Simulated scan of single mutants.
Amino acid sequence: MTMDVTIYHNPDCGTSRNTLAMIRNAGIEPTVIEYLKHPPTREQLVKMIADAGLTVRQAIREKGTPYAELGLDDPVLTEGQLLDAMLKDPILINRPFVVTPLGTRLSRPSEVVLDILPNTQKGPFVKEDGEKVLDEKGKRIG
């Protein structure tokens, strides 16, 4: 399947690994950007957040980041200030963002990626934690 898919990936994140595996289960080899090593530009980040229908606050990762220490929960901070923090310390960018011609999503949970992939899953899919997402025919469970 030829489809231009990009995943902003963190290989240490189970959700990101599951998302990447579901993309590949659809027969698509995406462009994988390890965003901690190669963060998006400000323009790319703003576009991904907007295209995913999120606010900047919804795109910030709190868990396992310096979010609290940096006081990013302060409601007076502007979106620009939050973006500055995310670009300075990319671990603050929630993951994984996936961009396809069918849309952009923050794939949390990982099966959200199925909403922006063609219906070409090659068979069953089970997440790393054992949760079944796709049946033997590649159809979504639940």
Results as ranks from 00 to 15, higher is better:
M1H: 07
T2V: 12
D4N: 13
V5E: 08
V5N: 07
V5I: 14
T6M: 09
T6V: 15
I7Y: 11
I7M: 07
Y8K: 08
H9V: 01
H9E: 05
G14E: 01
S16P: 02
S16N: 04
R17F: 05
L20R: 12
L20P: 06
L20S: 09
R24H: 03
R24Q: 15
R24M: 12
N25Y: 00
A26N: 08
G27I: 06
E29V: 09
P30W: 10
V32Y: 09
E34W: 04
E34F: 12
Y35M: 08
Y35N: 10
L36V: 07
K37I: 02
E43N: 09
Q44C: 12
V46I: 15
K47I: 04
M48I: 00
M48F: 10
A50N: 12
G53N: 07
L54F: 06
L54N: 08
R57A: 14
Q58P: 04
Q58C: 03
A59S: 08
R61K: 04
R61Y: 02
R61H: 01
Y67E: 05
Y67T: 07
G71R: 06
L72C: 06
D73W: 01
D73N: 14
P75R: 09
T78C: 02
E79L: 10
E79V: 07
L83T: 12
L87V: 14
L87P: 12
I91P: 13
I91F: 02
I93M: 03
R95M: 04
R95N: 05
R95W: 05
P96Q: 03
L102N: 13
L102D: 12
G103M: 05
G103K: 06
L106N: 11
R108P: 00
P109Y: 09
P109I: 05
S110C: 10
S110M: 07
E111H: 15
V112I: 15
V112D: 10
V112F: 03
L114T: 09
I116N: 09
L117T: 07
L117V: 06
L117N: 08
Q121F: 02
K122I: 00
K122E: 04
F125L: 03
K127H: 14
K132P: 14
L134R: 01
L134M: 00
E136A: 15
R140Q: 04
G142R: 07
